[in-house]
Design a protein around this nucleic acid. Structure first.
Lengths: 221, 221
DNA sequence: ATATACATGTCGAGG
DNA sequence: CCTCGACGTGTATAT
């Protein structure tokens, strides 16, 4: 990548228009075409552009163009403090633990933590309106659709599982269909909506569940 | 800020846990406590931490702790490529033009672009389930709720306006209530859901509308 | 290539 | 302080 420290002005045109007056910044121009402009403060870049892009430089103006979305970033370099190329060696992937995907796997492995006697029939079952996290049967043989959230459930999570239920109810042979949302906690609007729609709320500290699952893996691994 | 280029390993513990194996990265440690680790590719940092934080360095390990959320980032430096301090001068604010707020103003100013004869009664009308972008009356005197999107509408946008409509329908004196989503285009699931829920779709390139509005402003200003 | 959902999302406004 | 929706969201995954 190219690491440029300079005083510059920056114009962005695309989903909206931004202008940044003269000032000193750190600019990363990566080989995949992505660009990142960091100002003196803040974790987030003040300007950026995801790759792939075409980068041209002419008369002290670096023009980054992204044809896919018709966006352009123009960096007018006024004074260069440092300009160097870095050939970084990095093949390591970021390993994550505790993602939503992990959560689903964990719930699927231990459905009884959601409800006694619950059995998973299918995971990530696709429908017209999106995939159902867990397609289960409860202890009385009824279909139970489960939507799991890693973090606090909001109204949209409830609406999601309602959509799934409506989809499932189109097949009358399935009989009555239950809908559940499993989350560490529920926003007030999610609670109200769940109650109004007949969606069952299951409060479950998923972090703990995953921690326990890992402990089990350690024990049996 | 401190600009560190090095080979390192990184561990994050917080809302989840991540591990990043040995590799060369660019690390920005800003004076406001924010930290940003950039790998060889991608617009987003591979690891980060917003300020304020406490930074300690000991035995080649940089430990960034954020007490507010009990998060920790540990950078184990294995080999330093470059380590320098930059005192950047930058007071310029980022100026934006063309946000969703501008869009609503634009639609409110020209409701006839949504539908012939539509009249705006109220903007950002507050309800229990959130503010309605535009509360209108159509040419036949019916209430019409409008949700405007600057970019492609997804299912959640449809669900949003359905919630508004349900809220409005609790007052029977209002009569029948229409629900509209205005967006430059619609995702397939949004289409299906809108049709199922009786929500009307209005395809409108709002960016163009804003551009025209700006042209008008230029003409008359 | 397109569509969809996740994210350490982050951020800011309103009650 | 909490709750909520916008974001130039970016990014990976499945179709």
């Amino acid at each position: 990548m190219r690491l440029l420290v300079c005083c510059c002005r920056i114009d962005y045109r695309g989903r909206l228009t931004t202008r940044l007056g003269s000032g000193e910044r750190v600019i990363l121009l990566k080989d995949d075409g992505s660009v990142c402009v960091h100002s003196v403060r803040g974790a987030k870049p003040v300007n950026y552009m995801p790759g792939p892009t075409a980068v041209r430089e002419e008369d002290g103006v670096i023009r980054i163009i992204r044809p896919a979305s018709d966006e352009e970033l123009a960096i007018t370099v006024e004074r260069v403090v440092d300009d160097r190329r870095l050939d970084l060696l990095d093949a390591a992937p970021l390993e994550r633990q505790g993602s939503e995907r992990d959560l689903h796997a964990c719930l699927a492995a231990r459905p009884d933590t959601i409800e006694e006697g619950l059995v998973v029939v299918e995971r990530e079952r696709p429908t017209d309106v999106g995939p159902i996290d867990l397609w289960c049967r409860d202890v009385e043989g009824r279909i139970a659709l489960v939507e799991g959230k890693r973090i606090r459930a909001v109204a949209s999570a409830v609406e999601q599982v309602v959509r799934y239920r409506e989809q499932a109810e189109r097949d009358p042979s399935l009989g009555p269909v239950r809908a559940l949302v499993v989350a560490p906690d529920f926003a007030p609007q999610a609670r109200v909506l769940a109650d109004a729609r007949g969606v069952e709320r299951v409060t479950l500290d998923v972090g703990r569940l995953i921690a326990e699952a890992e402990a089990d893996l350690t024990l049996f691994g």
